[in-house]
Simulated scan of single mutants.
Amino acid sequence: MSISRESADAYWKENVRIILSYLVVWFVVSYGCGILFVEQLNSIPFFGFELGFWFAQQGSIFVFCGLIVAYAISMNNLDEKYDVHE
């Protein structure tokens, strides 16, 4: 199966946009919520813990796992859109 140059460029551009958007979410949650905004988040109780502590210890891991699933779904949809799926 062959894909045109224009289609391949559009596919790659969307692929990079998806990757960058998920990386921004990952950075904001892990660095922002776990380090930068921890003092503000600690004023919010969450299941008996301070929210900033929870994000630093477990929340960012849960978000990261969710991002892996979301990325796989996004890439499957992108592959089908450009007809390069398996």
Rank of each mutant, 00 (worst) to 15 (best):
V69A: 10
L67F: 13
I68P: 03
V84H: 04
G52I: 08
F64M: 14
F62L: 15
E50M: 03
G66L: 03
Y71N: 11
G52D: 09
A56Q: 10
V63S: 07
L78I: 04
I68S: 04
I44A: 03
I44R: 02
V69I: 13
D79T: 01
I68T: 02
G52F: 07
I61M: 06
F46D: 01
L78M: 13
E50Y: 06
I73W: 14
Q58M: 14
A72L: 05
I68L: 14
A70K: 10
M75G: 00
V84T: 09
D79I: 00
I68E: 00
Q58L: 14
L67Q: 08
D83C: 02
G59C: 00
S60Y: 10
V84S: 02
V69P: 03
Y71E: 08
Y82F: 15
W54K: 06
A70H: 09
L67T: 07
M75S: 00
P45W: 05
L41I: 02
D79S: 05
L78A: 08
G48S: 03
S60V: 00
L78F: 07
G66V: 03
F46S: 02
H85I: 04
V63G: 11
V69W: 13
I61V: 13
D79L: 11
Y82P: 01
F55S: 07
L51D: 07
E50D: 06
F62C: 10
Q58Y: 15
S43Y: 03
L41Q: 09
F53G: 08
G48D: 11
